[in-house]
Amino acid sequence: MSAQPRFKIKVRNLFFSYGENVVLKDLTVDIPDRAITAVVGPSGRGKSTLLTLFNRLWEDIPTARMLGSVQIHLNGSHRDIYHRSCSLSDLRRSVGMVFQTPNPLPMSIYKNICFPLKLAGKSDRKQMMPAVETALRQACLWEEVKNRLREDARSLSGGQQQRLCMARALVLKPEVLLLDEPTSSLDAAATEIIEQLILSLRETCTIVMVSHDMAQVERVADRGLELSDGRVVLK
C-alpha cells in the first residue's frame, strides 16, 4: 500500500445540469482523506447532486448531463471514476451512501445487512455473521438488535433504521461514505446518536455529508464547503 494521500477526492472543472437547469458550474474542489467534510447551503443548489456525482448514482436520470472529472483514491491510487475501465459496481462498493430517509428493504435486519455481501457474490455463510456483527457494532446498533436479527427491519424506529442503513453501507468496508442529510427525518435524540456515530467513523473512512443544519456542521464537520451559484466557497 502506498502512503495515504492528502486528498481522497479531486473534483476538476465540473459542470452539471438537469435539462436547462445548470446546477454546478466549473467546480474544482479537493476533499481531504479521513476527515468529515460537510456540504452546506440553501436547498435546491445541488448539494445532494454533488454527492451522487461521487458514486455515479445520478446517471439514470434521463435529462442529467455532466462535464469534467472526478478522481477518487481507491485501492491505492487516484482513479477517474468516469473512465470506462472503472466498474460501476466496484465503485459503489467502495463509496457507500446513506440517504435522507432510511430505506431498509422489506426483509429481516440480518438479511438487510447481508444484502450487499450477497450482491458482491460473497455467499460464505460462516463469514456473514461476523461481518454483520462488526458492521452493526460500528453503527452502534448491535446491543439494541442482537436478539432480534430475524425481525423485519421495518419494525425498528426511525433512528434505528437509519443506523441500520449506515451498517448496511459499512459492511462492505467502504473507503468513502456519502451521507445525504442523514438526520433530517429524525428527532433530536436519534440525531445525537447518529452524530456520535459519524464522529466515530472518521478514523475508518472519508465522510462527505450534506446538511442544512449549521449547528450540526459546527459540531461534527472538520471542514465545510458552501455551494453558491454552482461554485464552492470554503468555510
Binding site: 439514470d60 459496481s89 459503489r92 462498493r93 440517504f99
Partner: peptide, 13 residues
C-alpha cells in the same frame, strides 16, 4: 426513487 436507488448505492448491478 428512494426504493430504486437503495440497491445501486450498495453496488448492485
Amino acid at each position: 426513487r428512494h426504493v430504486r436507488v437503495t440497491a445501486p448505492a450498495l453496488g448492485a448491478s
